[in-house]
Structures are given as structure tokens and as C-alpha cells.
Design a binder for these strands. Structure first.
Length: 215
DNA sequence: AACTCGGGGCA
DNA sequence: TGCCCAGAGTT
């Protein structure tokens, strides 16, 4: 990590911000409970599908008390379009019951408690911690992992190292937005299978692109 | 590491 | 029609 790397990181972040400044995440919730449930729903389905479901869902069931009273069949019907609905409804209802029984109806604000909830893994926990509780954390999903590695914002073979390196390489002020930029870039341009390097505004700064050209 | 869960959107 | 999606849990 030398001054050239830092300069490169800074340029990449500037361009990401410039390019995606207007892009707003549909999965951004100030309310920790809403953030938790929306993120649990978002596993392997598009943000649009989640967004379609959540508005009405939170209107009708604003907290764990109300949501815990649903049967898996009832909730499954409501979240059907998000996929994996049987697993998700079962986990969400059980999580709501635990929130009521063990956490006074509130969402815990630490990693250990969050990941002990059924259906809540490290990524979901970090989204809640950083987004709704203002904790120092960056959630790393498949897009963030892949894109940050390709760009050289991280060089890691596991999620925890990516988290650490991103927190080192990105100014804290930009963490939550950078998380969104990387995901957005991963969906539109830096795709897993066929990255569209020819049309990428970061190609001159990208480590992956350089490596490809050397081949 | 390799499964399973899954309906919906999109080329 | 086939492929893939803001993951997590089990084997």
C-alpha cells in the first residue's frame, strides 16, 4: 500500500461518486427493524422485488410484535415474489419471536446477537449495524467482494479481510455510499460473468482490466 | 466445498 | 427458454 495506491483509490471513489451520485438505494432504512427484515428478504432477489413487498408489509406489520403473530403460510404469501419464501418467512417469524422474548422487541446493535438470529448472517448484520445504528462497518456482499477486488480497493480471499481493507482504503464518511456504489457498479457494469470493461468509466484505473490486457 | 432454497425479471 | 438475483444454513 503506497501513495500510488492511495491516489488510485481516491480517483476510483471520485469517479464512482460522480457517476452514481444520483442513484439511491431502495433498500435503505433508518428503522433497524425495517432494515433487518428488508435485508433478510433481499437474499438472492432483486432490490426491486423487495421494495415492492416491504412498503405494504411494514405498514401492516410495523414491528416484531405484529410480525411474530403471522403464520409462515400467511407471511409466505406476502413475500412470495421475493423467492425462497418458505425459508425466509420461517426465519423472519422466528427472529421476530426472539426479538420479543430476548431483546424487548428491539433489534440488537451488535454482531454477535444479530448473527445469532435465524436467517441473519454477517452481511445482513453489517447492513443493519452500519445503516441503521451508525456503527463502523461495511457490509460485503458478492458484488462488493468482487468489484472491490477487481478495482484494487481490496485484495482479499474472504469477506472479513475485504471489510477491513475497505475500511482502511475508503474514508469513513463515504463508507455507506461506497457500499452502494460498488453494488450498483457490479450490477450494471462490473458483472460477475461478463464485465463490460469496454464501457467502464474506471477501466484506466482498474487492476482487473490491466491484468486482462497483459494476457 | 458443494449443495438447497425459488419466484420473477429480462435478454 | 435460460440465466441470474443487495445470502444463509446444512451436509
Amino acid at each position: 500500500m503506497d501513495s500510488n495506491d492511495r491516489k488510485n483509490h481516491r480517483k476510483i471513489l471520485e469517479l464512482l461518486e460522480q457517476h452514481y451520485a444520483g442513484a439511491v438505494s431502495a433498500l435503505n432504512f433508518t428503522n433497524p427493524f425495517e432494515q433487518l427484515i428488508a435485508t433478510m428478504l433481499s437474499a438472492q432477489c432483486t432490490d426491486r422485488q423487495v421494495n415492492k413487498v416491504t412498503a405494504g408489509l411494514f405498514q401492516e406489520y410495523p414491528g416484531p410484535r405484529e410480525m411474530a403473530a403471522l403464520t409462515p403460510e400467511e407471511l409466505g404469501q406476502k413475500i412470495h415474489s421475493c423467492g425462497f419464501y418458505r425459508t425466509k418467512s420461517k426465519n423472519i417469524i422466528q427472529t421476530c419471536k426472539i426479538l420479543m422474548q430476548q431483546y424487548g422487541g428491539r433489534v440488537p446493535d451488535n454482531m454477535e446477537s444479530l448473527t445469532s438470529l435465524p436467517g441473519v448472517g454477517r452481511k445482513t448484520a453489517n447492513v443493519v449495524l452500519s445503516n441503521s445504528f451508525g456503527k463502523d462497518a461495511i457490509a460485503v456482499d458478492t458484488h462488493v467482494f468482487r468489484v472491490s477486488n477487481r478495482l484494487g480497493l481490496a485484495d482479499a480471499d474472504n469477506v472479513r479481510d475485504t471489510e477491513k481493507q475497505l475500511m482502511e482504503n475508503i474514508p469513513k464518511k463515504k463508507w455507506s455510499r461506497a457500499h452502494h456504489w460498488l453494488i450498483y457498479h457490479g450490477r450494471r457494469v462490473c458483472k460477475a460473468r461478463k464485465p463490460d470493461c469496454e464501457n467502464c468509466f474506471l477501466q484506466s484505473l482498474c487492476k482487473y482490466r490491466r491484468n486482462q490486457e497483459e494476457k
